[in-house]
Design a binder for these strands. Structure first.
Length: 710
DNA sequence: GAGCACTGC
């Protein structure tokens, strides 16, 4: 291994001679350089460059703290991999990671963000024509592929965190495998061919390779680097034809793993006992407890508070901090604040603390070994959340949270032999989710044979068939399984659930695109309304001013319009910033989740641009909401339900007995025929976001599914 | 009369 001894130590002399802010920045640059050189990956810079030069595909297994995400792109840039204007693209599964890493790397390069180094995520693109190191989400790169099927601007693509195996990462790997083959083996005359022809042409490429080779300009080959933190690189290596894998050391403090002697019957109770045990017997340091959901977190919080007065006074200095995704962000921020003097922080977290949020100061981790996951039942289309045991990889990830700043301890609330019985890794998302969106995107990329597509791991056959069927019934696919024109093509361009895309594509014919843009934006975000138990009455009164007797979709429309009107008025008299702040206050008064509303506004402006680019005319139905409800029927027809004599409903496509969720404005109304947005299974089958329709509309607008019954 | 892990375009 080449030694990477410091080669510019002579600069140190100069630094001491400088004064003022310049000296500060110089000192800072030096500090950055020192930090970079001390990273484990720095020792293998030269070796890595050689490996990338020699191999078109390289798997890098980098442990936590190796520095791979920030350093490798810089090594490649300095190693000449951006010659001829090529861009190094690095994908991340999460937005925050793309943003924070890009900022850090820009600083390390001494560049302004958006110049040499930038990031691009949905709603936010900081890159420019001079950007050479581009961090982005993997979903965004997939979208880019729809416009540029050969990803021609990239000379290197690094897929980071591939071990997480998100749907987007898996699809991206399949796409990149083909893109790379095409770019290294064939002429680029397809580059000028129409979008979406990429994989369809793949067959021709193989058979008429030489012929194609002689025409057109050749695209430069694509270097592909897959980075994973899991110790097992085999699956990636095998997928890429026995690709070379290299290992980069990490830098983590040791974490003591402790197990229970016996299996615990009640992990919540066991967690509670462990919290107190750590607090009373262990030295200073904060505690991170992994729980499965909000309910568990709130119940443990109450239990700890209840027991606290029973402790000796000197031992009562515990600060309990809950964190989960739906918590308002200002409350989430509390995990980053230091506890009051002498207090120990006990952080009660969901999976959010496993990868998304890194909390400083954690010395102890309590891991009951359970996690809540979404599953998918292809036959009913329901995606229930269930509590299951974690995988070994997950348990390791959790315990690692205790060793970031110093040696730590992890308490696994199960016996050691149970650990060995756990699955090695979590089942990839693609094997347990609805595939309709994935299939629509692959079709748009020209993959006609979905079952024959080279997935790193094959999805369930039944799930593929069910999703194809849905797309066919929506009119996105033709009889022979090809993307339909224009409906399928238009739908694939929209970053939405296929049913929502369908609603937009047909809204034009109902002259209600303006309204439908708002409705699908509001449906696309987490719940807009919140009703805290202690203020149930107040929140209900607030909702009343927006509610419509015709259903929740119109209620969402009214809400959006009311908020928009408020914001516009506010902007007339205040600065934009002040107006946004006023809007947040307005949200609070009206029991609306302002984060969700902001998200809906962002989606709205994006999809409005999308439909304009498609050349659709944005029409409005004005005061008459009938066309809007008919349009909902024309797109949500698979989610239709009829009232039964006992007051429950029968979902027409699945035959399931369902109930209107109590949060719906139609909960008491009980109309004869309705369409709904989603079916959730808890104690019962509940349907949410519902609108009143006429059964005859279904026969008229969805004859492929409904006929007049004799 | 009910509660929902986490991401992403």
């Amino acid at each position: 291994m080449p030694s990477m001894a410091s080669n510019n130590s002579t600069h140190t002399v100069k630094v001491n001679q400088l004064n003022g802010p310049k000296a500060d920045s110089h000192a800072r640059r030096q500090k950055i350089e020192q930090h970079r050189k001390a990273l484990p990956i720095a020792a293998v810079e030269k070796k890595l460059l050689e490996e990338v030069s020699k191999n078109d595909i390289l798997i890098i297994v980098g442990e936590t703290g190796s520095g791979k995400t920030t350093q490798l792109p810089q090594y490649l840039f300095n190693g000449g991999f951006c010659r001829n204007g090529g861009v190094i693209g690095i994908t991340q599964p999460r937005r925050v990671a793309a943003v924070t890493v890009a900022k850090r790397v820009a600083e390390e390069c001494g560049a302004t963000l958006g110049q040499k180094v930038g990031y691009s995520i949905r709603f936010e693109d900081t890159t420019s024509s001079s950007t050479r190191i581009k961090y982005m989400t993997d979903g965004l790169l997939l979208r880019e592929a729809l416009l540029d099927p050969y990803l021609s601007k990239y000379s290197v693509i690094i897929v980071d965190e591939a071990h997480e195996r998100t749907v987007q990462t898996d699809v991206l790997l399949g796409l990149l495998k083909t893109v790379q083959k095409t770019r290294s083996s064939s002429a680029s005359d397809h580059a000028q061919s129409e979008n979406g022809a990429l994989l369809k042409k793949q067959e021709d490429v193989r058979s008429t390779n030489i012929l194609k080779h002689s025409r057109g300009k050749k695209l430069p080959p694509l270097k592909l680097i897959i980075m994973s933190a899991s110790l097992d690189a085999r699956i990636f290596s095998e997928y890429f034809g026995g690709a070379r894998a290299v290992h980069v050391q990490g830098r983590q403090y040791p974490v003591d793993i402790l197990y229970t002697r016996q299996p615990e019957t009640d992990y919540v109770d066991a967690a509670l006992i462990t919290i107190f045990q750590i607090h009373l017997e262990e030295g200073p340091g904060d505690v991170l407890v992994f729980l499965t959901g909000q309910e568990e977190i709130e119940s443990i919080e109450r239990l700890v508070q209840d027991r606290l007065p029973k402790l000796p006074e000197s031992k009562r200095k515990l600060s309990i901090i809950p964190i989960f995704a739906s918590l308002p962000s200002e409350k989430q921020m509390k995990v980053f604040l230091p506890a009051p003097d002498g207090f120990r922080k006990i952080i009660l977290a969901t999976n959010i603390a496993e990868t998304s949020v890194t909390i400083p100061g954690i010395k102890y981790v309590v891991d009951p070994g359970m996690v809540k996951v979404r599953t998918y039942d292809p036959s009913s289309g329901i995606e229930p959340l269930i509590i299951v045991k974690t995988s070994k990889a997950q348990a390791l990830q959790r315990s690692g949270r205790a060793g970031r700043e110093g040696p730590g301890k992890c308490y696994r609330l199960y016996p050691e032999n149970e650990f060995y019985k756990l699955k090695d890794s979590t089942m990839p998302e693609i094997k347990r989710c609805n595939l309709s969106n994935v299939i629509l995107q692959l079709k748009a990329l020209g993959v006609d044979d979905i079952i024959g597509f080279d997935f790193i791991e094959e999805p369930d056959r039944m799930a593929i068939i069910k999703s194809m069927e849905l797309l066919f019934l929506l009119g996105a696919l033709t009889d022979d399984g090809k993307l339909s024109d224009p409906v399928g093509h238009q739908m694939s361009r929209l970053p939405l659930d296929p049913i929502y895309s369908k609603a937009l594509v047909v809204a034009n014919q109902f002259s209600c695109l303006e309204e439908m843009l708002i409705v699908v934006s509001m449906l696309s975000v987490e719940s807009i309304f919140y009703a805290p138990r202690e203020k149930l009455e107040e929140s209900r009164t607030a909702l009343k001013s927006f509610s419509s007797t015709e259903g929740d979709h119109l209620t969402l429309l009214n809400t959006y319009r009311a908020s928009d009107e408020f914001l516009e008025k506010s902007k007339l008299v205040s600065s934009n910033e002040k107006a946004e702040k006023n809007l947040r206050k307005w949200c609070k008064e009206n029991f609306i989740n302002s984060r969700s509303l902001k998200h809906a506004r962002d989606i709205h402006s994006q999809i409005r641009r999308n439909v304009e680019q498609m050349g659709l005319c944005i029409t409005s139905c004005g005061e008459d909401m009938l066309p809007l409800r008919r349009c909902l029927a024309a797109s949500f027809f698979l989610n239709a339900a009829l009232k039964q004599p006992d007051g429950t409903y029968r979902a027409l496509s699945s035959g399931l007995t369902v109930q209107i969720h109590p949060s719906s404005v139609l909960f008491r109304g009980k109309p004869e025929c309705i369409i709904f947005d989603e079916l959730v299974r808890t104690n019962q089958n509940y349907i949410r976001n519902i609108s009143v329709i006429d059964y005859l509309w279904l026969i008229e607008l969805a004859p492929q599914c409904y006929a007049l019954q004799e």
